[in-house]
């Protein structure tokens, strides 16, 4: 999760398209299957969780933070995910988060009644950047400036394939897309 959080931050803050592609290609090269495939799914918005919605996350936070102070903070920051990541009492990364694939599995399989506890536990374990990535992952709506097209270009770059070939494979396969990286 650490590497994925780092990648999301780099993508969010790097204005240059070429550097975004470079960062993506580098991540895809260094990260094993199926983590890299899931990362791709997250970034292109292909993933969602039945029991994890922005309103759910907000509930979890409001159990910890005064609602009025949360409202003032949200007004100021302007982005729900980022407000949640910043306002959660920092404990400074108490425990390593699971790998991306395991994390997605956890979010998918935890029963609805237990999801709030899981989210609270993950938020407390995470370092600040991981917490931001975690909230982004859980709520979708990444807004980090990565289009499907950009991701495909990065894949073409790392595999040496044609962009056209990548697009052809893309349509015929399912998450976590191991054929794409082959």
């Amino acid at each position: 999760m650490k590497q994925f959080a780092q990648l999301l931050e780099t993508l969010a803050l790097t204005p240059s398209r070429n550097r975004k592609i470079e960062a993506l290609a580098d991540y895809f090269t260094k990260t094993p299957d199926p983590d890299r495939g899931y990362a791709l799914a997250v970034m292109t918005g292909a993933l969602s969780f039945a029991h994890v919605k922005p309103a759910r996350l907000k509930e979890v936070v409001l159990a910890e933070v005064d609602p009025h102070l949360f409202a003032l903070s949200y007004d100021y920051v302007g982005d729900l995910g980022e407000t949640i990541a910043l306002i959660w009492p920092h404990k400074g990364g108490t425990r390593a988060l699971p790998a991306l694939t395991d994390l997605i599995e956890l979010l998918n399989t935890t029963p609805k009644a237990k999801i709030a506890d899981l989210i609270a536990e993950l938020l407390t374990s995470a370092e600040i950047n991981e917490r931001w990535a975690l909230v982004k992952l859980a709520t979708g709506g990444l807004r980090i400036g990565v289009s499907e097209r950009l991701a495909k270009t990065a894949l073409a770059e790392m595999s040496g394939k044609d962009l056209k070939d990548i697009e052809e494979i893309w349509h015929g396969i399912k998450m976590p897309y191991s054929e794409l990286f082959a």
Binding site: L13, G78, E82
Partner: peptide, 15 residues
């Protein structure tokens, strides 16, 4: 610089 949105608006790559 803790607010990423703010760093982005200012074109800051390393907040």
């Amino acid at each position: 610089m803790s607010v990423k949105q703010r760093a982005r608006q200012r074109g800051v790559e390393l907040p």
